[in-house]
Amino acid sequence: MAVEWMGKYRTFVEKIVKYGNSYADSYKKEYNYNTVFLFSAAQIQVLEYLLENEDKNQNMLEIAKRLGISKSAFSKHVKKMVEKGLLEKYHTSDNKKNIIIKVSTIGKEVYSQYVQYAYEKCFKKIFSLLDEIPMQYIEKMEAILDISASATTEKTKQKKEVNLILIEE
C-alpha cells in the first residue's frame, strides 16, 4: 500500500520518525558520554531540569509532572542518580514527606563534562546549521516538533481497547 497522502513531505516525516525511534531506543540506556559515570538521556534531562530550576525547591511530584514522566519513573531515575552521587535528597523542615532534590557538586562536574562532549559530538553541527536559518523558520520547526510531541503524548493517553471482529467466510 502506498503512502501518497504524505506527498512531498514523505522524507520529512521519515526523518521525524527516524529521530523518534533512535531517541526512544537510547532514552533509557546508560552511556558514559565521555565521563566516568554511566547515565541515560532520561537522567540527563533530570539533571538539566534541576540545574535550571535549582532555586525553586520543587518536590519530586512537581518535577515529574514538568518533565512529563510518571512519579515512579522519576523516582527510579533519582534513586540511581543519588546512588551514583550525582544528586542529593533533602527533607523540608516543615514536612518530612516532602523531598527536595539537588544536583551534587559531582553531578555539576559530570554535567559540565557531558555538555562539552554533547556539544562537540552533535550540537555544534546543529547550532551551526540553525545559524543559517532565519528565526521565523526555526520557530515554525519548533511548532512542528511540538505538534509531533503532542500527537505522541495523546496517543499514549488513549485507552487501550481491543476490538475483535468476527470474519465470516
Rank of each mutant, 00 (worst) to 15 (best):
K56I: 03
E139S: 04
C122W: 02
I126D: 03
E161K: 13
V115G: 00
Y119Q: 09
K108I: 14
I126F: 12
R66H: 12
L67M: 15
I138T: 10
G85L: 11
F37I: 07
K159E: 07
Y90M: 03
I100P: 01
K124M: 04
K89G: 10
Q158C: 14
T153E: 02
L51K: 14
K108H: 14
N53I: 11
S93H: 02
K84I: 01
E83I: 02
K97Y: 08
K160W: 11
L47D: 01
L47I: 05
L61A: 10
E48P: 00
S75P: 03
I44D: 00
T153V: 05
S150L: 01
V115C: 04
Q136A: 14
I69M: 15
L61V: 11
A151E: 07
N95T: 06
I138V: 11
S128G: 06
L61W: 04
Y90I: 14
Y114I: 07
I133K: 08
K80N: 15
D94K: 13
S40Y: 08
A41G: 01
K125P: 00
E88T: 06
Y49F: 15
K155L: 11
K65G: 12
H91S: 13
P134T: 12
K80L: 01
E62Q: 13
K89H: 15
T156L: 05
L87H: 03
E109S: 14
I138H: 15
I99N: 02
M81F: 00
Y111G: 06
A41I: 06
S150K: 05
E142N: 06
I44L: 07
L130N: 08
N57L: 08
I101Y: 00
M141G: 05
K96I: 15
N59I: 01
E154H: 05
I63T: 14
Y111S: 09
M141C: 12
S150R: 09
L61H: 12
D55P: 00
I99K: 02
Y90V: 05
A149T: 04
K160L: 15
E154V: 00
V78S: 11
Y49M: 08
Y117C: 02
V82E: 08
A118V: 03
F74N: 02
K80W: 01
Q158D: 13
E132V: 08
K140R: 10
I138P: 10
M141I: 14
T92Y: 01
M135R: 12
A73D: 11
K155C: 02
K89V: 06
I63K: 02
E161Y: 07
E88I: 09
F37H: 11
G85T: 09
Y137L: 06
N95Y: 13
S148G: 09
S128W: 00
D55H: 09
K56D: 05
E83F: 03
G107L: 02
E54H: 13
V78N: 00
P134M: 10
Y117F: 15
Q116V: 09
F127Q: 03
K125S: 11
N98A: 02
L86V: 10
A151V: 05
